[in-house]
Amino acid sequence: MSSDLAARVTQKLDVRTKKRLDGKGQFWLIFRYFALTILFVIAALPIYVMVINSVKGITGVSQSAAFIPPTSLNFEAWGPTWEVLREPMLRTLFFVTQSSIISAVIGAINGFVFAKWKFRGSNLIFTTFLFGMFIPYQAIMIPLTKFNQWAGIGGSIYVLVFAHVIYGIPICTLIFRNYFAAIPNELIEAARVDGAGMVRIFRTIFLPLSIPGFVVVLIWQFTSAWNDFLFAIFLTGGSPKLSVATTALNFITGSGNQVYYGNNMTASLIVSIPTLLVYLFLGRYFLRGMLAGSLKG
């Protein structure tokens, strides 16, 4: 169960030392902190560079001073950058909200069936769904573009809602299936004795219990759709009318503008803020979504 995996990762171990550490024990503890701190510096470096250079103005980023924090805060680069990014980011928010909600509903229904209302061959079908999680989207991109034109959503932002809903089915189903599998069968048996059918059992027992599952799926779909670049660039063809957060950012930081680091780093930071906030406040749920993708349980 992915929630079990996440619980294992985040479990609080008793770290109080029961006895005084001997010399060897102290050495290892210091060594561990030293190594962890080095890894912390490496992990934080790219975002550190991004943050400090976003408050040095548009041209104020001298090449060698970039590691040094600014002496005074200069938000000059934020205004114009936000102006350019506002529309694409609002557009992204618009489609991501829809695709996440639809994905979660579909995932809940599928997950319930694959975990608790199995039919002959359901495990095999579930496995064929999972394969959809691993495929390179290049292998479906050409016909998908044609389909979108045929379906009349080509050239509108709904191509992205559609793509993220369809290709999100495997992961959302998997997350809910693992989540529901942990709910005891006795609940169903009891409801059945009372004469409840599948739809009623799903609606009255499983849906109310599934809030954490919904949070995991919504966060996962939100983050992956917000950060997605592949679908965006293939399906919107780089049209400015349909630019989303990542494609707009790529347009700002792309070749030719690479010297304006202050500006580019500000833009990159602005685009990252929504997903970083989600991670900061709901990181536990994000971890669950991430570990669900590993299939194991």
């Binding site: 985040t10 992990a43 970039a66 917000w226 950012l249 930081t253 990159s268 990181g283």
Partner: peptide
Amino acid sequence: FRSTYLYPMAISFIAMGTSWRWL
């Protein structure tokens, strides 16, 4: 430490690419 090691997963590579290109 765990949260810091995991945050890169939450950011798009188009955004982090700017930092890495400079680094």
